[in-house]
Amino acid sequence: MYLAKYIAKRLFWGIVTTLIVLFITFWLIRLLKIEVPLDKVAAQIQEQRREALGYNKPILVQFWRWISHLVRGDWGTSYFIEKLVPVSDIIKRRLVPTVTINIYSEVLIIPLGILLGIFAATKKNKWQDHVINTGVMMFMTVPSFVMCFLWMYILCYRLGWFPMQIYSLSESGGWFTGKMLYSMVPGILALTLGNIASLARQVRAELTDQIEADYMLLARAKGLTYRQAIYKHSLKNAFIPIFPGIIAGFLGLFAGSFFVENIFGIPGIGKLTLQALNTYDYDVFMSCEAFYGIIGMLATIIYDISFGIIDPRIKMGAR
């Protein structure tokens, strides 16, 4: 019961905060000065369009109109990016490449990150650990877009193994073909390595704590081998703080990346947001922001709740 109450409370506050943030974003994006075309006719058309869409009304009226339509499933219409196409259609279409590349990355990140972390923890303070730690530090600190450039330079330019930009749909025959996967490899590498490093570091830190715990001594005293003791006892405990992050990370599949998508020419949701911001396509931009806001809110709630589900000792929200 306490869990339902907790979720309700979190959801309520989450929605209130998201609404306020969305309102401020809504207001800020309308503060951006739009360029008035030099051509008089074009300027008049633009002015009439803005008048018809209610952009000259008070900001609260506009926001109410937008949010009430959003709740009813009408996300608005794009004008500059794809003329007069419903935003929900655009977002649905743009989500496909983003989710595809993120699934490919996640498939690499989770097993590799966990395995590397376990390996480093069991070899603590030996040379294998130092090598992994150095790699982790390098890949975690170098920002993802610099990583993109380095991969682009090495793999696409120097070695010429991969195309500079991903193939178009007509070239590859679909988002899920092998050819598309091949052209996505540099982008996937740029997305995964940093995340593998941070997951490995987290696993190593948690596991080394657990390996030094008293119950491990008991397990060894009972006659378990080192390996058995790690897999039966300490791994389970080490994963308590790690799993919620992984579960919440699945929602991150929908979050696009500004950089990977822009650098490798992937027509995903991150690129859409940037395009919308650059062209002042209000409806598209606000829908993207609402989409991100809701995903972010859900991710934190799921993160908190899954703690309680994985470890019954933890009662979220209880005093």
């Binding site: 390098m138 600190t141 920002p143 450039f149 380095l150 682009m152 330079y153 330019y157 500079m164 650098i263």
Partner: peptide, 28 residues
């Protein structure tokens, strides 16, 4: 530099390396 990658790769590579170096060192 990204626009000139094919003709002059060092325009991309040098700032990328400097930035990476700054990041790594500041974190260390």
């Amino acid at each position: 530099g990204q626009g000139n990658l094919l003709s002059n790769p060092h325009l991309l590579l040098v700032p990328a390396i400097v930035l990476a170096l700054l990041m790594i060192c500041f974190n260390l």
